[in-house]
Every structure is written in C-alpha cells, then in structure tokens.
C-alpha cells in the first residue's frame, strides 16, 4: 500500500485555481521529486496534504486512511510533516528549543527533557549540532532552511513534505546536502515528496518525478524519462532552462 495517496485534489483561492484534480501516490520509503514552473501549485499541494490548507475537493489518504480536512497538528501526529518554503522558525527560541517543540508535540512526548534529547540527536543528524544554542531568529537563510528540515524530522514523521530545502546553495554545499539527505534517508527510511527547482538535486535524490503545471500533473516517471519528455521540456524546462 502506498504511504500517501492523493486523488483528484483541487484547491482554489477565490478565483485562482491552484490545484486542478491532482492525483499521485507516494510509496513506502519512496522519494518523489515534485517539479513545475513558479506558481504551478507545488507548495499548495504540500500545504493541502499537511492540512495547513483545506482542499476544495478531493482526498488525501495516509496508509489507507483519509486525512484530508484534518487539522495540521493531528496530521503531524499521524506521521506527515512539512517544511516551509519560506522558513518560519520560532524566532525568539533557541535552535534546540525549536526542534524540541517538534519532537515534544509531534511525537507526543510527555515532558521537555526527552524532547531536548531528541532535538540534540536530530540536530546532530542534520549537522547543526554546533548551532543549537543560537536564537533561531539569528540564523542565516540557509541555516533556517536546514532547521525546517530538522523540525520535520524531529516530529518522527514517516512522510516528509520538503519545500525547496536545497534552494540557494552553492555547488559544493549542494553536493554535501545531497549526500546528507541520502544518508538520512538510508537511516530513517522515510517517504518524501521533495519540491525542487534545482534539477541536480531532484535527479540525485528522487526515484520518481512528478511534474505540475497550472495545477495539473502533466507528466510522471523516472528522472530520466522526465528530462526527455517533450511536454515537460516545453512547459517547464523550456521556459526556465535546466537549472543547476
């Protein structure tokens, strides 16, 4: 059974139709890339799956159970966590406390102590152990993105919805991040839906790719098939060029 099954999902904001009947399925431990031009509905899709926004119609199932329409905190506790494209750290709290919030509530721990320990473990995994006592508001943009990732992992989620966590990295940083991601995936065996503009990242971390355009899935397949798909090249790569 797939971990997440999205069927015929639509979402409109007033007049704007951000999603128009999107269906896809994400297998256990599968990493699926989600690409598409700006404004094609990628973030909206993640938000609706995570319950941050309510779908206009359609369903999301997690392990066979319908979760669409549930509150975001309930969905997190069922094991689905998302990162924000524009990071939203708890600015006045330390990095460690930020991650502890996710561990404490996402994993339904009873007290703060174990949550802090969990936070330390997670921060070590994402390579931010040396940042744990800084105020989250004082981090650099890249560190804030990584903190988003740490929070999502700390919730104990089995399904991660990652919104452009690789954006804005230099070539070496990107290489390190990809390596880190692969290592984490090997260790934690989560499923992930990875929104990305950076093609190199998509091709390197994901087993399959789904392409969105104007709220519709226009192609799906292996990374190799996708880069050679005529429609994709026209709709997406043609307009933006194959990014690094």
């Amino acid at each position: 059974m797939p971990a997440v099954e999205v069927s015929n999902l639509s979402k409109s904001f007033g007049g704007v139709q951000a999603l128009r009947g999107v269906s896809l399925s994400l297998g256990e431990s599968e990493v699926l890339g989600l690409i598409g031009p700006n404004g094609s509905g990628k973030s909206t899709l993640l938000n609706v799956i995570a319950g941050v926004q309510k779908p206009t119609s359609g369903t999301v199932k997690l392990g066979g159970r319908a979760i669409s329409g549930m509150r975001p905190d309930a969905i997190v506790k069922l094991g689905v966590a998302k990162t924000y494209q524009i990071p939203k750290p708890f600015a006045s709290m330390s990095v460690r406390e930020n991650v502890a919030v996710a561990a404490l509530y996402g994993r339904r721990l009873r007290s703060v102590g174990p949550a802090l320990e969990e936070a330390d473990r997670t921060l070590a995994i994402v390579g931010m152990g040396d940042r744990s006592d800084l105020a989250a508001g004082s981090l650099t943009a890249q560190e804030k993105k990584r903190l988003e990732l740490a929070k999502a992992i700390a919730t104990g989620a089995k399904v991660l919805l990652l919104d452009e966590v690789f954006a804005g990295l230099s070539s070496e940083e990107l290489r390190d991040s990809i390596a880190l991601f692969r290592k984490m995936h090997e260790e934690l065996r989560f499923s992930a839906l990875v929104v990305e503009h950076v093609m190199r990242a998509v091709l390197n971390v994901s087993e399959g790719v789904v392409v969105l355009e104007e709220g519709r899935v226009i192609a799906a397949g292996s990374p190799d098939q996708i880069v050679h798909d005529e429609r994709v090249v026209q709709a997406y790569l043609g307009s933006k060029g194959v990014g690094t």
């Binding site: 995570a50 905190d73 966590a81 006045s92 919030v101 996710a102 509530y105 996402g106 929070k151």
Partner: peptide
C-alpha cells in the same frame, strides 16, 4: 514550550504538531 512556539509563529507551531 508549545505556547512560546505559538507566540512566535502560530502556523508553524501547528505544523510541528502543536494544537
């Protein structure tokens, strides 16, 4: 801890599992 998260970023707190 949950309340402080809400004070800082309520939506992100919910996305981290806080009700």
């Amino acid at each position: 801890l949950g309340i402080r998260a809400i004070k800082d970023e309520e939506d992100a707190a919910a996305a981290a599992g806080v009700n």
